[in-house]
């Protein structure tokens, strides 16, 4: 489990994250949703230490991340897998090398064992046989899936996904969502997903935090979100005519 407690972040006198607290549960798909620029990605970057928190705690299974030394932080990070918005695959490496990279760095597996693990991960994201392709030769959806394969290669305990569906067609989005949900449940991972895709929210939103102007504005799950009385969340969820038509507020 990951718990954030009263985290704050200010950039150039702009208070971007305001006293946010939330519990991200293991084995569940935890979603951070909100409008563009509301502070979702900043919260995620604060959690993984890409930004330093001004105040507050980020607790990974009892260990307060911001208070750890460099080595302690590295140890936690070895348990993290992250799927970036653009994939962030290493351009100079093939798919096989990309997925095998965390194994190269942190395990003493033999070449054959590594290849087995890489092939398993690639097969899991339906990219089997694409080992020798470079990121430049992949489509957007394939890049996301490859990045997911890399994120899961070293059996992470925590999985962070920054807008895994952005720029993807609805069919591929569902494939990615299902993959993330399956992996989360199968390995009891604490998964945190940033999204503003309402399909994802309704499909896989088991534990949701709605961020509004840098604050934790609402928490709940996918069933509660459709009946919300919270005006800001309502405006966010029912922004499209489609949503208004099919899931009208009473």
């Amino acid at each position: 489990m990951i718990e954030i407690r009263n985290i704050n972040k200010t950039f150039d006198n702009r208070h971007v994250v305001k006293d946010v607290s939330f519990k991200f549960l293991p084995g569940k798909t935890n979603l951070i949703i909100g409008e563009s620029g509301c502070g979702k990605t900043t919260i995620m970057k604060l959690m993984v230490g890409l930004h330093e928190v001004d105040s507050g705690d980020v607790v990974f299974d009892g260990e307060n991340f911001p208070k750890l030394d460099v080595k302690g932080k590295q140890e936690i990070r070895k348990k993290i897998g992250m799927l970036f918005q653009g994939g962030a695959l290493f351009d100079s490496q093939t798919l096989e090398e990309n997925v095998g990279f965390p194994l190269d760095m942190f395990t003493d597996l033999s070449k054959e064992e590594k290849l087995d693990r890489v092939n398993f991960c690639l097969q899991r994201v339906k990219l089997e046989g694409k080992n020798k392709l470079y990121p430049a030769e992949l489509s957007g959806g394939m890049k996301k899936r490859a990045a997911l394969a890399r994120a899961m290669a070293n059996n992470p305990r925590y999985l962070f996904c920054d807008e895994p569906n952005s720029g993807l067609d609805p069919k591929t989005s569902i494939i990615i969502d299902d993959l993330i949900k399956d992996i989360t449940q199968e390995y009891n991972i604490t998964t945190i997903i940033i999204t503003h895709d309402m399909n994802s929210v309704i499909e896989i939103g088991e534990n949701i935090m709605f961020v509004y102007k840098g604050e934790n504005w609402w928490t709940g799950d996918k069933t509660e979100i459709l009946g919300t009385k919270n005006q800001e969340l309502f405006d966010f969820v029912f922004a499209s005519e489609f949503m208004k038509t099919f899931f009208k507020k009473d």
């Binding site: 993984v48 932080k73 936690i76 993290i80 970036f84 962030a88 351009d91 962070f160």
Partner: peptide
């Protein structure tokens, strides 16, 4: 620089790599 702007360096950091 290209690795930085495409978040490849962030990816390395998050894996726990210096």
């Amino acid at each position: 620089g290209a690795m930085r702007i495409t978040e490849q360096i962030d990816a390395l950091e998050i894996m726990g790599i210096n």
